[in-house]
Write a protein that binds this DNA or RNA. Structure first.
Lengths: 246, 246
DNA sequence: CGTGTGATTGACGCCTGTCAACGTCTGTGG
DNA sequence: CCACAGACGTTGACAGGCGTCAATCACACG
């Protein structure tokens, strides 16, 4: 549980040689930007700023006003809220191609989450003026952003139902499956995202100790194998069954 | 807990004399429609269909494809998801001025929730073609819808954190405060929304019996008074304190 | 080698879900 | 007018899931 007060100590971003990296995002990676006109894309490439960040860096903090959003070019960003006693609740992870911080820009509210680098990342900064101007002037682009928001909203609603109705055991199994679906497995069937037990607990919404106990149960039941933060998925079907996923 | 199978029995909508009712929505009630041009508003008024529904009517069902959304002119609509064993999880209530079903339209997905009439309602139906056309062609309108979605998303994220971290007792107190803020109190400080104990439980994410027990605790602590489904708020501050709201 | 962070394990107990029984109220039909 | 059914509310008993606290271990790092 990291205290807010020290967050500024963790800033250490570096500007990235500008040109090539983001051109990729604008076209291949991300369906969002494919609707931009040539002129818009030029403006976009001209105005964006790419920065590199390392694990632990805070990109923005809950309740702060942010004046731009970020497109993740590489790495993983943890999006979370700080609840009672500073306990963090992880809302989602952003991976390459994802956009973070856009919610607050578009609704013109303060950030409702914090964003922290989980895996060294390169981020492209897009000013709120630029984003809003694109949304207002390009109907197809705004539809894409809208779809994104709606998709997130649908997922949030589903998660509310899960947390409210499922046991910790079921939720942990479900989280493992979701992580598998979102980040994939390497050649050894090991999850491509490494989380501390505490972080797992902060997704599931439980205590660290409970995660530890349940993970070893899963291990004993030959559903997973553990090696530090590396989790090897042995029986995805079994996990799905536990999670009540179909 | 009502079974899906019988849902169609509960349909009983009536067409409403078309003209006056919705003109109100388009202007005063709802900031969303204030950005429409004169022409758009005309088309809007021409194409919309107003229907009246009574308690228990189902407007749409989870996992179904819906080809339009509804603007609530009067009444209250319950938006919920069906979880394990058919237990319903209430996501939100829509009241006059709110729009329901737009998420699925905009993201082009199946409905992720069901909608059921809680209090006799008049709804205005807007076809998906109309909605999407407005979003694509009117930047200000699309910004308004976007804001709405983002606001809902922010609330959903906050709720995830609450459910994950707060006790049932805290959540119930918080729900009472939210209901007070959203639906207000009458001259006797009685909540202007009447819910069954089971429905309260399905918001909080707990068992009906737990709600009953906690409500009577609150009553003993002189925070509320109970009279059937009528809940009189005696000490909002006390409830806030219990809910950890600031 | 000391320090700090994260992982693990055990003990303990409360919150909360489940089950069961019963009370209350309303509407329906005989 | 009464009996009955059905929905909803209430209460009690009970068990167990899960959070909390505390102690210990493992490991990396300066």
């Amino acid at each position: 549980m990291t205290s807010y007060i020290f967050s500024s100590f963790q800033y250490s971003m570096k500007l990235v040689h500008n040109s090539p990296v983001c051109d990729v995002c604008s076209t291949e990676f991300n369906p969002i930007f494919k609707h931009l006109t040539k002129g818009e894309l030029e403006r976009f490439n001209y105005e964006k700023t790419c920065t590199s960040h390392s694990r632990g860096d805070i990109i923005y903090n809950e309740s702060s006003r942010i004046n731009g959003c970020y497109c993740v070019h590489s790495g993983i960003v943890k999006i979370y809220k700080t609840g009672i006693d500073g306990k963090e609740q992880i809302i989602r992870f952003a991976k390459p191609g994802d956009i973070i911080g856009y919610r607050s820009i578009l609704s013109n509210e303060l950030a409702c989450t914090s964003a922290k680098i989980l895996e060294d990342s390169i981020l492209c900064y897009i000013s709120s003026e630029l984003l809003i101007s694109l949304v207002k002037n390009n109907g197809n682009f705004s539809m894409e952003i809208m779809k994104l928001t709606c998709k997130e909203l649908g997922e949030a609603n589903a998660y509310i139902t899960d947390i409210a109705q499922k046991t910790v055991r079921e939720r942990l199994a479900e989280v493992l499956i979701h992580l598998k679906d979102n980040f994939g497995l390497d050649h050894e069937n090991i999850l491509r995202i490494y989380l501390t037990r505490e972080e797992l607990a902060n997704i599931v919404g439980t205590a660290t100790e409970s995660v530890i106990r349940l993970l070893s149960e899963f291990k004993n039941d030959r559903l997973i194998e553990l090696n530090g933060r590396k989790i090897k998925i042995l029986d995805g079907g079994g996990l799905r069954k536990i999670a009540n996923l179909f």
